[in-house]
């Protein structure tokens, strides 16, 4: 596996030299994906919890749609956002296309269904355990939402990490709406795609290894933090 050796060497070089372009790209990747996951959590957590508790006609259909949207191809999400933000589109006047903001919007669209669907499952399970007690204490379904989200917080971290994984890994959506502009919208994944198409496979794989390390560090941090908090909260 000669290519693999080269890739490891490239990754090592990138990390130890603290390549400024790499730092910029990695920082943008993190910033975009974390922002998108934050927004998606803001929408997905209450949406998922509401779907777990609410009873309305068509609820089943909404759940199926959201579950299916977990498989939304990134390129399709990218195209939707592209058409929305393009100068010829409804949000064109804001001039958001080919900016990091556009990438955040596209990734939010990708991540929200994941967080909402997983949240719905977690909260629905918890609700079967809590419903009588909370009803007895006088909490209506609406009031139960924040309580259930808070008590499910350790499971929900996993849902959020799943969303972050999708955001950090995807390239299709941000390539379309970000344009992979050097120094403006180039992220880890679009840089990997670019180096692959330039045939510089070791550098592409090296960047991939760096990305993997970043994601690994985030997950390890979340795990440690979660374990500590869980011990403290029982």
């Amino acid at each position: 596996m000669q290519g693999f050796d080269e890739a490891l060497a490239a990754a090592w070089r990138l990390i130890v030299t603290g390549d400024t372009a790499l730092v910029e790209i990695a920082a943008l990747s993190l910033k975009v994906s974390l922002t998108a996951v934050f927004c998606a959590a803001l929408i997905g957590l209450p949406l998922g919890a509401a779907l777990a508790l609410a009873r309305f006609p068509g609820r089943g259909a909404v759940i199926v749609v959201i579950n299916a949207l977990m498989g939304l191809p990134p390129v399709v999400a990218g195209l939707l956002v592209y058409l929305l933000l393009s100068r010829a589109g409804p949000l064109g006047p804001y001039g958001l296309l080919f900016t990091p903001t556009a990438m955040v919007i596209a990734q939010t669209l990708l991540v929200t269904p994941i967080i909402a669907a997983l949240t719905r499952q977690v909260v629905a399970d918890l609700w079967t355990e809590y419903s009588e007690q909370l009803t007895s204490l006088g909490a209506g379904r609406l009031r139960a939402v924040p309580t259930l989200l808070w008590d499910a917080r350790f499971s929900l971290v996993t849902a959020i990490l799943a969303g972050l994984g999708r955001a950090m890994a995807e390239v299709g959506a941000i390539l379309v709406v970000g344009g992979n502009i050097d120094g403006v919208t180039r992220t880890m994944t679009t840089a990997i795609a670019l180096e692959t198409s330039k045939g510089d496979l070791p550098l592409a794989l090296g960047l991939g290894i760096v990305l993997l390390v970043i994601v690994l560090v985030i997950n390890a941090a979340a795990h440690l933090f979660g374990a500590t908090a869980r011990r403290a909260a029982g």
Binding site: A36, C39, A40, I43, L84, L91, T101, V104, T112
Partner: peptide
């Protein structure tokens, strides 16, 4: 629509 608004705000 809300997702877009929230994303823009977050950004």
């Amino acid at each position: 629509r809300r997702a877009v608004m929230a994303a823009a705000m977050g950004a």
